[in-house]
Simulated scan of single mutants.
Amino acid sequence: MLTLRYILIYSLLMTAVVVASNVLVQYPLSGELAGIQLGDLLTYGAFTYPVAFLITDLTNRQFGPSMARKVVFLGFVVGIALSFWTSMPRIAVASGTAYLIGQLLDISVFNRLRRQSWWQAPLAGSMAGSMLDTALFFSLAFAASFAFIGPNDAFAIESAPILGIFAVEAPRWISWAIGDLCVKILVGLVLLLPYGALMNTLKPMGPATQAR
Rank of each mutant, 00 (worst) to 15 (best):
L4Y: 08
Y6E: 08
Y6W: 04
I7S: 07
L12I: 09
M14Q: 15
T15G: 13
A16R: 08
S21P: 04
V23F: 03
Y27Q: 06
L29V: 00
G35W: 10
G35F: 10
G39A: 04
L42Q: 02
T43A: 14
A46N: 05
D57A: 00
L58T: 05
G64R: 06
P65Y: 13
M67V: 15
M67T: 14
M67G: 07
M67L: 15
R69F: 13
K70H: 12
V71E: 06
F73C: 04
G75F: 06
G75Q: 08
V78G: 09
V78N: 09
V78K: 06
G79W: 09
W85Y: 12
W85A: 13
T86K: 04
S87L: 06
M88H: 05
M88S: 10
P89F: 06
R90Q: 11
I91R: 03
Y99M: 04
G102D: 10
G102V: 14
D106W: 03
I107R: 11
I107E: 09
I107W: 09
S108Y: 15
S108W: 15
S108E: 11
V109A: 07
F110T: 00
N111L: 06
R112D: 07
R114E: 11
A124K: 02
A124S: 05
A124V: 03
S126R: 01
S126W: 02
M127I: 15
M127Q: 12
A128E: 01
M131K: 05
F137Q: 07
S139A: 12
L140C: 09
A143W: 06
A144Q: 11
F146N: 00
F148T: 07
I149Y: 10
G150E: 05
N152F: 06
D153Q: 13
D153I: 13
A154H: 14
A156P: 12
I157A: 13
S159H: 11
A160Y: 00
A160T: 01
I162Y: 02
L163G: 02
L163D: 03
L163C: 02
L163S: 02
L163T: 05
I165V: 15
I165S: 04
F166W: 01
A170Q: 09
P171T: 01
R172N: 14
I174Y: 06
S175A: 11
A177F: 05
I178S: 03
V183L: 02
K184Q: 09
K184L: 07
L189C: 10
L191C: 10
L192P: 05
L193E: 11
Y195Q: 03
A197C: 07
L198V: 02
T201K: 12
T209Q: 10
A211G: 11
R212I: 15
